[in-house]
């Protein structure tokens, strides 16, 4: 998990991103004023419950939004360039080249009637500056397959001949095919069995280390995020509520939501902890709660939380969170049963 790549300037900077979905009942505030940075060679994990806006952020970054979605405000700066200002055609060329995405369940999106290698070559043909010859492209695909741990001869095979884990590895190979600066991996291992998941994560970790790539992992599985990222962003109801180095956030979650989330994650290691249930349900984002969006479920909520929205503030260097009462949060994540 060690990172040797220098992290001088941020590779990606997201500033005050606001994204809404228009529905017949009104505007759904899916991403609200989210800011974070991602350094070169760094990995960031976005965690939170379903519907908290993790995938919406990803789709905004790569600008593959559904028709009813609008980015209302904000900047997505990749290597000094605001991606939100590019024309659709310019953006099309940046996808895969600069920023690529492994979609949730992508392993099931292979076209069954084409060879896997041919499908990857299609991406290479379109996105490489100069269209490579078949031989060049195949050499690249063979290299990618080796990188993700598949026998290169498999590129001549059809998707049904691949196991689940291999299909997912091939998706990762495809995401790497144009040497992107950033990969967004949306639940890359959710459909996989634990042993295969471990292998795929190990592969991703290795690739990130070898190629110095930046990766954004999106997952509801906190244990997976703990293993593969060095920064973590905890999201709740469209807002980023805590952001910091993974080690620090796990050692001492300071936002009540992160604290509850971590305390409700079962583990096979260590003594058996009492699991704290998180009461209630996430809010309706058509009409988000006033003040802090977490206050209806928060055990530490006060009148101030109902009235005023807490800003995202640095608590310690590089560890930011938005909570009025973070000093109330117990310092230990869990108690033993």
């Amino acid at each position: 998990m060690t990172q040797t790549v220098s992290r001088d300037t941020p590779m990606l900077e997201v500033r005050n991103l606001v994204m809404n979905y228009g529905t017949k009942d009104g505007m759904v505030s899916a991403v609200e004023d989210v800011s974070f940075t991602l350094a070169r060679g760094d990995s960031l994990g976005l965690v939170g419950e379903s519907g908290c806006g993790k995938t919406s952020i990803a789709l905004s970054l790569i600008r593959l939004l559904p028709d009813n979605a609008v980015v209302k405000q904000g900047e997505v700066i990749l290597d000094g360039e605001n991606m939100l200002e590019l024309s659709p055609e310019e953006m099309r060329m940046r996808r895969w080249d600069d920023i690529s995405m492994v979609f949730q369940g992508a392993m099931n999106s292979w076209n069954p009637v084409y060879r896997v290698g041919d499908q990857i070559r299609e991406a290479i043909d379109i996105h490489w500056d100069e269209k490579p010859t078949v031989r060049e492209a195949n050499a690249k695909i063979a290299e990618l397959f080796e990188l993700v741990g598949i026998d290169p001869s498999m590129m001549e095979r059809y998707p049904h001949e691949f196991s689940g884990g291999m299909k997912q590895r091939a998706v990762i190979a495809m995401a790497l095919s144009c040497d992107p600066k950033i990969i967004i991996a949306d639940e890359p291992t959710t459909a996989l069995d634990v042993i295969v998941q471990e292998q795929v994560l190990e592969e991703l970790r290795q690739i990130q280390h070898d190629l110095g790539m930046s990766i954004i992992y999106i997952s509801h599985d906190i244990a997976v995020i703990a293993e593969i990222t060095n920064h973590i962003g905890v999201m709740y109801a469209g807002k980023l509520v805590e952001y910091g180095p993974t080690v620090d956030v796990f050692a001492r979650p300071r936002h009540p939501y992160s604290w509850l989330l971590l305390s409700s994650t079962p583990s096979v290691t260590g003594p058996r902890m009492k699991l704290a249930p998180l009461e209630g349900e996430p809010p309706n984002l058509l009409d988000p709660p006033s003040g802090c969006r977490f206050h209806p479920r928060c055990p530490f909520a006060t009148d101030r939380c109902v009235a005023e929205e807490p800003p995202m503030e640095d608590i310690v260097e590089g560890h930011r969170l938005a909570c009025w009462n973070h000093d109330q949060v117990p310092t230990t994540a869990k108690e033993t049963e």
């Binding site: 998990m1 997976v224 293993e227 080690v247 290691t269």
Partner: peptide
């Protein structure tokens, strides 16, 4: 192979 929610593990 089970992921562990502890980055120092």
């Amino acid at each position: 192979a089970v992921p562990v929610p502890d980055p120092s593990y």
